[in-house]
Amino acid sequence: MSTQHSTPYVPALPTFGDLYNSGHAHSHNREYEGLLIVAQELNKPKSEIQKFEGNPKDYQRFIRQFNTRVCANTSSYEERLNFLLQFTSGEANRIVTGYSHLNAEGGYKAVMDEFKDRYVFLTECQHAVNNVASARALEYPENMKLIVKKLPFYLQEKWRNVVYELKDRREVVKFENLKLKRPTTLSMEEK
């Protein structure tokens, strides 16, 4: 008695080139392109959105991640505003919470405008001071005060401490002394 093992025939999916070269290119072309796009999206590594705490140097990274992961996948302002609440903390979350009483579209747009005013402006100022000679007007004390007022409170406090330290050493306070870095834990020497 002989036993035959047969594998059922499973036809291979046609490639894009096969469809394009056949007479059915126009009818199957869109369907196949759609399937390719879905397959590519499913195979992409999942990216995480890091919480935004209000540090101006982290703003561009956050907004790029938020636009890619949230805005590209929903047109609902309700969902976008809820995700902003979820992916922010500290000063940034207080801004989002402050506008969350508005209707979803108005609240979302107001938050994004506030973020741009507050965080894009500060990073552009730093870039201008470093790269444009005429931007030295930002070095004037009154202009630095106006800029520092836009910072989250913990960065304002940090700036105040830097200014006192520089004045104690009789050094000139410059915009470049404004280090917009996330606060870290104190080292043993600082405690």
Rank of each mutant, 00 (worst) to 15 (best):
T3W: 10
Q4E: 09
H5M: 13
H5G: 11
P8T: 11
Y9W: 11
P14D: 01
T15E: 10
G17S: 15
D18P: 00
D18N: 04
L19H: 03
L19K: 03
A25V: 01
H26E: 09
H28F: 10
R30H: 07
E31C: 00
E33L: 11
V38Q: 10
V38T: 08
P45Q: 10
S47C: 13
E48Q: 15
Q50K: 15
K51W: 04
P56L: 08
K57M: 15
Y59F: 11
Q60K: 10
F66E: 12
N67P: 06
R69A: 06
V70F: 06
V70W: 08
A72V: 03
A72Q: 10
A72D: 11
R80V: 14
Q86V: 04
T88A: 07
T88G: 04
G90K: 01
G90D: 07
R94S: 06
R94K: 08
I95K: 00
T97V: 12
G98A: 07
G98F: 11
Y99C: 12
S100T: 08
H101V: 09
L102K: 08
N103R: 09
A104N: 14
G107Q: 02
Y108P: 00
Y108T: 08
K109T: 15
D113A: 14
F115Y: 06
F115S: 05
K116R: 07
V120R: 11
T123D: 07
E124C: 15
E124D: 09
H127V: 14
A128H: 14
V129H: 03
N130D: 11
N130V: 03
N131E: 15
V132L: 14
A133E: 12
R136K: 07
L138G: 03
E139M: 03
Y140M: 14
Y140D: 09
Y140C: 13
Y140L: 15
E142M: 08
E142C: 11
N143F: 13
M144A: 02
M144D: 07
K145W: 12
K145T: 12
I147E: 04
V148Q: 04
L151P: 07
L151D: 01
L155V: 02
L155T: 01
L155N: 03
Q156P: 01
Q156W: 05
W159R: 00
W159L: 00
R160N: 11
N161R: 10
Y164F: 11
L166V: 05
K167N: 06
K167R: 13
D168G: 08
R169P: 00
E171I: 09
E171R: 10
K174N: 09
E176L: 14
N177H: 10
K179M: 12
R182L: 09
P183K: 05
P183G: 04
T184L: 05
L186T: 08
E190G: 00
K191N: 05
